[in-house]
Design a protein around this nucleic acid. Structure first.
Lengths: 128, 128
DNA sequence: TGGGGTTTTGCGAATGTTTCGCAAATCCTG
DNA sequence: CAGGATTTGCGAAACATTCGCAAAACCCCA
């Protein structure tokens, strides 16, 4: 039960994600596949992305316009993303600093931290 | 020009926001107003929220399901939100700690930080 | 206090994203 | 290569959000 067939559409989507380390929307992915003649239906794009997200190999985030975007992302160790406002490329950022912050939060507000998300916007090395 | 009429719908929406310090979606607000007999069209709810957001008195965030939610929020000084996973109530968190983090980010990755958003999820004092 | 010009509202229709049902196509295994 | 399980593609929903426009509400000032 619950096999995992290696199909052409899935291959195309995964290859595209591997080639571009930034958050892309389902529509963007769909359009780009179209351009490179690897036509995949939009519904399949959504389904594949959701599958990869559940599997944990893509990170999803909704952008300021409310559109969900996806990026390949190894979850091996917890980290955060610094997203370049200009080119959209993403830098991984480890998060040791947060530990002490968590304990301060606990002491000061009695808030038991069990999850967090951070996002940084700015300009990356190459764009500057 | 560009006056700012104090209308019944706006009053109702603002009063509701004042009474509940957690992020609410337009639909939730619309429904709750309905319940308390202060019927306001959904379009107006959206327009009012957008107006308040532009004015800077409400903070907007899109939740994990992609829906935009709003909460009254004085922007006087930059701070972050700790959202209780259970009751949804929001705690303000100042952010001095971030300064040193920003400079580490700059030195290590050449990433010029000019904006950031943090969100913490956990369980608040009263829920525990 | 009431008229008039401006701003808002409400409605339904339009838009855009995401999901769903289902038959046809694809894929793996033996 | 056949058979059964999984995926795909399509168009049709299901949502959230925005828009246009006529009617209603609001404020100002005579």
């Amino acid at each position: 039960m619950r096999a995992d067939y290696a199909t052409r559409p899935r291959g195309a989507i995964e290859r595209l994600l591997e080639s571009d380390r930034r958050y892309l929307s389902a529509t963007q992915i769909h359009t780009r596949l179209d351009v490179e003649q690897a036509r995949v239906s939009l519904a399949t794009v959504y389904r594949t992305l959701e599958r990869l997200h559940t599997k944990g190999t893509v990170s999803a985030r909704v952008d300021e316009r409310g559109e969900t975007t996806y990026m390949l992302c190894e979850p091996e160790h917890h980290h955060h993303h610094a997203i370049c406002r200009i080119c959209g490329r993403v830098e991984d950022v480890p998060c040791r600093a947060l530990d002490e912050f968590a304990s301060a939060l606990q002491q000061r507000y009695g808030f038991e931290l069990d999850g967090h998300a951070m996002e940084f916007s700015g300009v990356c090395n190459t764009c500057r």
